[in-house]
C-alpha cells in the first residue's frame, strides 16, 4: 500500500511525485510560488531566489529543492515576502528600469512581480549603470538596461535553438549579458527573430523591433491579471 507523498505548504497539503521540486509540485496543485528565473521548459537555474521558501528555518529555492514527504514549507509569509521584495528592489536599482516609458510595461515579469509583492519604492540607491542598447540586428533590439541575469535566453538559445547566441560574463556587480560574436553585436550572430530565445526574456531586454506600444498600455497581460494568476495558466515571457 503506498500513501501519496505530501508536504505542507503554508499549512495546506501538497501531493507530489518522486523527483518533483517544491515549486513544481505546488504549481501542479494550483499553488503559486513567486519565481523569475524558473520556466517550465527548462531545468531549474536557482539564481533569482524569488522562489525562496522557509523549510525548517532554512530559506531554500523552491525551484531547485526536491519535495520531501512530510516536510513543512512556508512561502506566503510576511517574512519571506519581505525578503522577496528586497531581492526585487536590488534588481530594480542594479539596472535601469523606468516602467512609465518602457515598451515592455504590462508584459514584464519583474514589474508584475513588484506589484504582486507590493513593492512600492526602490528603497536602495540606484546604480544607474551606463548600458547602451544593441540595435545592430535588423529585427531584434537588445536593451541591456533591464537584464536580470536569469539566463533564460542563454538556456533557450543553447538548448532549444542550438545556437548559443547569449552568455553571461563576469561576476557580481560586473556581471553582464554578451552575445556570441567577435564584434559583440547581435547583428553579427546567427540569431533570428523566430528563435525561442527571442521570445523568452521575462523583462524588456530582447525586444522585437518597431513594435513598441502597438498594444496599448492598460490592455496588456499583467495590466489586467496578476502574475500569480497568469503564471498558473502559462508562462508568459
Amino acid at each position: 500500500m503506498s500513501e501519496t507523498a505530501r508536504f505542507l505548504l503554508d499549512g495546506a497539503p501538497v501531493p507530489f511525485a518522486e523527483g518533483q521540486t517544491i515549486l513544481e509540485a505546488a504549481r501542479a496543485a494550483g499553488r503559486y510560488i513567486p519565481h523569475l528565473c524558473w520556466h517550465p521548459d527548462f531545468p531549474p537555474h536557482g539564481s533569482c531566489k524569488l522562489c525562496i521558501v522557509d523549510v525548517g528555518g532554512r530559506h531554500l529555492s523552491a525551484c531547485a529543492t526536491p519535495a520531501v514527504d512530510g516536510a513543512t514549507a512556508a512561502s506566503d509569509t510576511p517574512e519571506i515576502n519581505a525578503e522577496r521584495r528586497a531581492l526585487l528592489q536590488m534588481l530594480f536599482v542594479e539596472g535601469n528600469h523606468f516602467c512609465p516609458s518602457c515598451e515592455k510595461s504590462g508584459l514584464c515579469q519583474l514589474q508584475a512581480m513588484a506589484s504582486e509583492l507590493g513593492m512600492t519604492t526602490p528603497r536602495f540607491n540606484h546604480f544607474y549603470p551606463d548600458r547602451p542598447v544593441d540595435a545592430s540586428h535588423p529585427d531584434v533590439l537588445l536593451d541591456f538596461n533591464r537584464c536580470i541575469y536569469c539566463e533564460l535566453c542563454v538556456r533557450a538559445s543553447r538548448d532549444k535553438d542550438g545556437k548559443s547566441v547569449f552568455a553571461l560574463t563576469n561576476r557580481g556587480i560586473h556581471k553582464h549579458l554578451v552575445v556570441n560574436a567577435e564584434s559583440g553585436r547581435l547583428g553579427d550572430t546567427d540569431f533570428a527573430a523566430d528563435d525561442v530565445a527571442a521570445g523568452i526574456c521575462p523583462v524588456g531586454v530582447i525586444l522585437r523591433k518597431r513594435v513598441g506600444f502597438a498594444v496599448p498600455i492598460g490592455s496588456r497581460t499583467y495590466d489586467t491579471r496578476p502574475i500569480s494568476a497568469v503564471s498558473m495558466d502559462r508562462e508568459e515571457p
Binding site: 512609465p100 516609458s101 515598451e103 547602451p132 542598447v133 540595435a135 533590439l141 536593451d143 523591433k209 518597431r210 513594435v211 513598441g212 506600444f213
Partner: peptide
Amino acid sequence: QGRPYWEVPVMVQR
C-alpha cells in the same frame, strides 16, 4: 540619443 525611435513619443512625456 541612442534610444529606439518607437519609445520616443512615450518617453518625451516626461
